[in-house]
């Protein structure tokens, strides 16, 4: 997983509340075999509109998405985080998220920043014309106009994102303990291995 410390760039000022996982990635994308390429299906219904925010030239490859309350509600599909990542989004800024979505986002190297609606309103305004700067280390979002918003984040999640640790990398740090467990298991209960 790519670590996140500072992300600077265009922010897509979506602003909508209750963006559910069906909006982020419609169900028919669930019969696929890869995580990659899911950016094509991201926000499919919104992008059917030719003048949509996502396909404006200045927003191509924008690393930040700004949304309203309860972003990522609905089904538990991890495809939503995959789709955002594939679209190039590294940071979402919203007043609140569904629990499952924010967990899935962090698992996939996407930072869910929580800021109050007033800050969101201001950032939406800036995003129309200028880049936004997110610093995970100092937990701040800043703009070229002296705006500075501090945000909170769970220390464990912060550590995972800063170090680019997915859960697998974290568990791999316990490799010695797993080795020891396997050794003990083979000694005490050798019959646990499938016989054939």
């Amino acid at each position: 997983m790519t670590p996140i410390e500072k992300v600077e760039g265009r922010a897509i000022p979506l602003g909508l509340k209750n963006v559910d996982t069906d909006v982020i990635i419609p169900a028919h994308w669930l019969k696929t075999t890869t995580r990659e390429g899911m950016g094509k299906g991201a926000f499919e219904s919104l992008r059917a509109d030719p003048g949509n925010l996502f396909d404006r030239p200045e927003n191509k490859g924008a690393p930040i998405l700004i949304a309203g309350d309860n972003f990522g509600c609905g089904s538990s599909r991890e495809h939503a985080a995959w789709a955002l990542g594939d679209l190039g989004i590294r940071v979402v800024i919203a007043p609140s998220y569904s629990d499952i979505f924010s967990g899935n986002a962090v698992k996939n190297g996407i930072l869910p920043v929580v800021l109050p609606q007033a800050a969101i309103d201001r950032l939406m305004e800036v995003a129309e014309t200028d880049p936004i700067h997110v610093d995970l280390d100092t937990q701040t979002v800043t703009t070229p106009f002296q705006d500075r918003f501090a945000f909170e984040i769970d220390p464990f999640r912060k550590m995972c994102l800063l170090e680019g640790l997915d859960e697998i990398s974290l568990t791999e740090k316990s490799g010695a303990a797993i080795d020891a467990y396997e050794k003990k298991l083979d000694a005490e209960r050798p019959w646990m291995r499938p016989a054939a």
């Binding site: 538990s76 991890e78 899935n104 698992k107 859960e167 697998i168 568990t171 791999e172 316990s174 797993i178």
Partner: peptide
């Protein structure tokens, strides 16, 4: 388990 957990088990033979 979910797909991320499937990957986790494939890679580490454990779950948190």
């Amino acid at each position: 388990i979910g797909t991320s957990e499937v990957e986790h088990v494939l890679a580490t033979q454990t779950l948190l």
